[in-house]
Structures are given as C-alpha cells and as structure tokens.
Design a protein around this nucleic acid. Structure first.
Lengths: 237, 237
DNA sequence: TAAGATATTTGATTTGAATCACAGTATTTT
DNA sequence: AAAATACTGTGATTCAAATCAAATATCTTA
C-alpha cells in the first residue's frame, strides 16, 4: 500500500508524519478524511507573519523556511522545515496569529488539519499529544542550542553548528565525504545565523582552506572532517 | 482552603500551577500524593547539565536561572523560571540527560513528579497534555523572539526586549512608573544577552540619560517610557 | 551554449562591541 | 558600624565583523 504513495497523492502518506506514526492502520484511515492537501511552488508564500491561522500544517514533500522581518528590515530565518515537520502548532491553542512567515524553498506538498478537527483527534488519541510534546521538546532543545551558540561570541562555532545541523537533516554519505544538500543560499544561511553574507563567505573559505569542507557548488558541499566541525561547535566537551 | 497555602506547605498549592489549573478539585486531590516537594537555598544547584533526570519540576516559589556553559567558558543563561513555571519536561520523553544546569536565584520551593507518575496522569487527564503543549508553544514563541533579536545586529533592541520581558514577569506598577524587580544581576543579564557586562552598563546608562528608565538600585529599576522600549525592541511595526 | 541575471567571493575601510584596567558603589559579614 | 567582599561603571585600546565597492563565479533560459 505504501507503494501507492507518491508525494501524498494517496491517503496513507500520513504514516510518514512522525506525530501520527504511533497510530495503527485503522486509526490512520479514520484521520484521512479530516486532512486537506495543498501544493505550493518554489518561492510561494505559504503563511505570512500576522495572518490568522487555524490549522496545523504538515510537510509531506519539499522544504520551507520560516522567518521574521526584523525592525531594521532584515530577514531572520528561524527554521528550515522539511518532510515530516509541522508548523502552525502555536495557533491550535493560544495564539491566533502566525508568528512567522513561511515560504516554499522548492515545490512543496502539505497536509493540513483545522483546529477543530485536530482537537477531536487529540482527545481521541492521547498518543498524538505525547508525540507533539516530544517533538516540541526536541525543537526547544535545538533552539536552546541555537540560543547558546548565539551567545557564544565565536561566529565559527555558530557556523559549524549550522553545518552539523544540515548534516543531520540534509546529507548523503559518499566515499569522498558527507555530501550536504544545503537548503538555503549563502544569504539564507547568513540570515539564519544573523551575520553578514560576506562574513559567512570568508569563514567558509577558511574552513575550505583547512580542508574541513569542500564546496562543490552553491547548493552542495562535502564535509571532509566532521570531527573538526564538532570541535569548532564545542560539542567535544 | 487556599488560605492554608503558604509556600507549598499545603496540598492544594498545585492549583496555582497552570498546567494543572484546568483540573477540578477532585482531580487535584488525586494528584497530590504523587508529588514530591523540595526546598533549595539561594545559589544551590538544582540540576546540573548532563545529569540524569526523570522528573518534571515545577516551581512553587522563588526563581531560578537555567544556563549552559559555552565551550569558551562563559555562562549562557537560557531562561529565568519563576513561580508556576516548569522545567525538565524534555526528560519525560526523549532525552534522559538535563540539557542545562538550573540554579536557585533565591530560596526556592519545588514540586516534582517522576516520569512514571506523570505518564499515568497525562493519560488520564488529556487536559494536562493540552496545557503542556500550550505552554511549550508559548515558550517556543518567546525563544523565537529571542532568536530573532539575537539576529538583530542592534544590541539596544535586545536589551529593550529583555527589559520588556522582565516587565511582563517581574514588575509592579507605581505612580512613578513600572518598577522592575530584576531577577538577575547586570552580569546575569549580560549573560542572557550574550554580551559583555561593561557593554550592558554603558547601554543602560544611555537609556537612563534618555529618561527611558531610572535605576533605583542594583536589583530594581523604574521604566519611565515603556513605549520607547517597545520601539527600540521593534515591536512597534 | 551564450548572454543575462543572480549569487558569491574578495579587498579596503569603518564601526561598534570586547577586553583590559581600575575606580567607585553596594552588600554582606562579623 | 566598620571591614571585607562582591558588584557596577568608566576610560583607553584592541579586534572582529559590518559595510561599501568591485570583481568573479554560478545558475537560468532563450
């Protein structure tokens, strides 16, 4: 039945979504009719900061960036979400307004569940609530680490941490090294780190000189010495 | 019955804890025997980064700082938790190890619930899970804002944001202005912001010159122009 | 595949915050 | 209340990253 599943055109795709994966086949089938599907093109705005939102959105295919515009007009990227991630959860309870904008980085397919339907679901299957708490906990952990590394004066540490994060989410191991498929441009990465694009270029250049990474093209790089990145990021201690 | 409640010496104190406040009297009474109480003195370490933890801890009285030590030896403060806040939730699911250290900033009383007892509870009362998701969502919102303002180059914006945060949590309105009871020393605040103590002093001095704030003593300041802080923090747009 | 459009790198300069050093102030402690 | 100790503010200097300005490289698409 999984073989039917192609970019969420078929029902059981939701089994790939971690927060639902604890449910059995029967439960999954009962959820299917509650779900709405959408497709977005590259560059399309899925959500705009301040919009009224009443749905949980789950990414089935593709990746998106979630960002805010800072008072001085810069774009601060908060997350890159990809397959299996969800957003808009804050709007299921408390907040009514989206607290960031979300833009498709490539062709994206989503599933969404309205607040009302989600409430029904969560009350019926406690497992889902537990999974969400778990995932939110994970997300908080990541943010704590980001906050920590923002506090670290050393920009090198922050860059290394970002690359390691991408290594976890967007990489393939090859004989030459770990190949990262960067979800963002240099500018985007700089905007995640809150630093200038030029500074990122220079720092990546230094990493390349030290043979820690090798740039293949603008969207892919090879990590040659992951240990060195770990060390730079301060994960060694 | 509330009148009996003094620093959590009596059972029904848990009604003051938001995640339990949705429960009725009967449900609350059934939880009481599951709770363990602790007292910590000022400066005492409640949790150490990396410790094995298997409990959710809720603060009944007092305030604590949660921090990590960065690779370069600095203390990065992640949160200041006070009455009604909880921590250690990440350890109820996924992680086994504390991802930050927690130190009492004054005399602190806590309630704690072990993982096992909490699981029983959450399965029985779905409301609690929903409350936790809500609170985690709120916490994520705050962190998103912090991350955003970390990205903002302007340190003034970050300082203003921190003062506004304290205004929400630790202030009393007086005829003269809003009186903030700072939970942290200048050094602590600098460590929350990831900046040097001296820089914070200078910047606060400037705010004082502009009559936006007035320092009463090391632990209290008066906010004279909250709107100016809002503007600096970039909340105006 | 070549031209146009984007994105990235590199260099020179400026700027704002960190650091160092110390003086001045508060808080404890006895 | 005086002494000890911890905390905070200010000045001088250093340094790392931002900015400004081109120059290259890379991607697109006609």
């Amino acid at each position: 039945m999984n073989s039917l599943c192609h970019y969420c055109q078929h029902n059981l795709c939701i089994h790939r979504v971690p927060i639902f994966s604890a449910l059995n086949q029967e439960a999954l089938l009962s959820i299917v009719p509650l779900i709405q599907r959408h497709r977005y093109s590259k560059g399309e705005l899925i959500l705009c900061e301040g919009d009224a939102v009443d749905s949980l959105m789950i990414i089935n295919h593709g990746s998106v960036k979630a960002y805010r515009i800072t008072p001085d007009g810069r774009e601060q990227i908060l997350y890159v979400f990809s397959e299996g991630d969800f957003f808009g959860e804050a709007n299921l309870f408390g907040q009514q307004k989206a607290n960031y904008s979300v833009e498709a980085l490539e062709e994206v397919f989503t599933c969404s569940l309205t607040k009302e339907k989600f409430e029904i679901l969560i009350r019926e299957y406690t497992e889902i609530a537990l999974r969400i708490i778990e995932e939110l906990g994970r997300r908080i952990s990541v943010m704590e680490t980001s906050l920590q590394s923002m506090g670290v004066r050393s920009i090198n540490a922050r860059i290394a941490a970002l690359l390691l994060e991408y290594q976890d989410k967007f990489s393939v191991v090859t004989p030459e090294g770990t190949e990262l498929h960067l979800p963002l441009s240099r500018e985007g990465m700089a905007n995640s780190l809150g630093i200038a694009r030029e500074t990122l270029s220079r720092k990546l250049g230094q990493l390349e000189t030290k043979r820690i990474i090798r740039t293949l093209n603008n969207k892919t790089m090879l990590v040659l010495q992951p240990e060195s990145l770990q060390k730079l990021a301060g994960y060694s201690e």
